[in-house]
Design a protein around this nucleic acid. Structure first.
Lengths: 245, 245
DNA sequence: GAGTGGTCTAGACCACCAA
DNA sequence: TGGTGGTCTAGACCACTCA
């Protein structure tokens, strides 16, 4: 670790370098989701910097919700599991704000090859093996979301419909517990669309009813895209909440 | 400024207290949008704390994009004006990502009294005077958004249709330059809806076409709600982009 | 009580900017 | 050259957790 202030034209602050080193350990699986990472002083001596510098690197990662600090206990690799709101990325809320019972129904699970569009989204070569999942999400016994999900096959080797059915929770927690893959952020594109006949039947609504279309690409450590999904949502009695800053 | 560690049950870190003091100066208009605030050392001696503590308070405010740091120059009160992307809160993007020429057309400007719903959203008493604005936003000569905007009248005394027409840019920059009121964050609720006859005519589309409905409440310093708006957007060739973290 | 993260200070030096 | 923000260090002490 060299503090090369003006030596190099692409100078990076020490704490940024530490941040990269910690991220690399996460990518390599040295610490898995839910694990405690070494204390700030341990990391400081390992990287030969002061505790304050390690602290600033961890601050940044904690801000991005990649790490979770717990006073008196330690710093932990974030998981979807432990989040109170089970579904971090699910922004759909009932108009009256009440809690709802969530259920998901698997419609299909297939293995396929990436076409041009998918390979572009997930940064794969055309023809790479992928898994495709279609499912229905039910809120308080009413189907509200039709999901179409695509992931590359190789990092999720052995994934199958049975596993998805058994694990009744979020797919993201399945990714973490079974494959050590955590999604750290996602990009979404929202549109209003009309339900086509097939979707309308699945969601038990009329043809042409307006649906909120949510296309999402999720990224894991190192900003690698790992999942594409398209959700079609009934929003007559629900809304997608968002906060702008 | 007292470092009352265990003295008080509702202990707040010093830097949080400093943050509140700075925010109060912003609310009271001591520094207006675009102004430089005093240097970290000046604030430190004013508040009788170390420069590092002031720094941490400013860090937090800079993260919330309330202040903007400029190395070598100073720290400034953020403005909508200086943001490259003129319309910070406008998330609508063309499918192909190209830049578009924006224009807005005022449909109506009226003075009215807050009903129950509005007074609830804006934290006003029922019957408080408000201004209502209806306008059309045009992207590259095609009308894409029908906006209905409500603000309380008293903080925006003297606002009228003429001013809105003259200032062809974002309403938010008008609020800042004319009234010193800056919106620091907003909450949105998105839904897919069907165009009713009136809206369809205004947007030059067929009845019942799906529209993206965006209901937004914007907040100024001290988290005070100051504007309600409902936007109805055509999304056949555009999408609302969002990032989840 | 030992160990962890959280706050606060003081001081050194670097990078950027303007006059 | 002087002033500003940006980085880094070292050390003190507080708050929380657990054995």
């Amino acid at each position: 670790m060299i503090n090369n202030f003006d030596a190099s034209p692409n100078y990076k602050p020490l704490y940024e370098q530490i941040k990269v080193l910690i991220t690399q350990s996460l990518i390599q699986g040295e610490w898995r989701p839910g694990d405690a990472i070494p204390s700030e002083f341990d990391l400081a001596s390992r990287f030969k910097v002061s505790q304050g510098t390690v602290r600033k690197a961890i601050d940044a990662l904690a801000n991005e919700r990649i790490l979770i600090r717990k006073q008196g206990k330690g710093t932990f690799v974030a998981t979807h599991e432990e989040e109170k709101i089970q579904l971090r990325f699910l922004r759909l809320t009932a108009e009256d704000g009440r809690k709802e019972h969530l259920k998901n129904t698997l419609l299909s699970f297939t293995r396929a090859k990436a076409d041009k569009e998918i390979s572009n989204c997930l940064d794969l070569k055309v023809g790479t093996a992928i898994y495709e999942i279609k499912r229905l999400l039910t809120f308080s016994n009413r189907p509200l979301i039709y999901d179409h999900i695509v992931v590359p096959a190789s990092p999720f080797k052995g994934l199958n419909g049975q596993k998805i059915i058994e694990k009744q929770g979020s797919l993201y927690s399945l990714y973490e517990t079974q494959y050590g893959i955590r999604m750290i952020r996602a990009e979404e594109r929202l549109k209003a669309v009309s339900a086509d006949a097939k979707i309308a039947r699945a969601l038990n609504i009329k043809d042409k009813e307006p649906l909120l279309s949510i296309e999402r690409v999720s990224f894991t450590y190192g900003d690698k895209p790992m999942e594409w999904r398209l959700g079609l949502c009934i929003t007559d009695n629900h809304h997608y909440r968002n906060e702008l800053e």
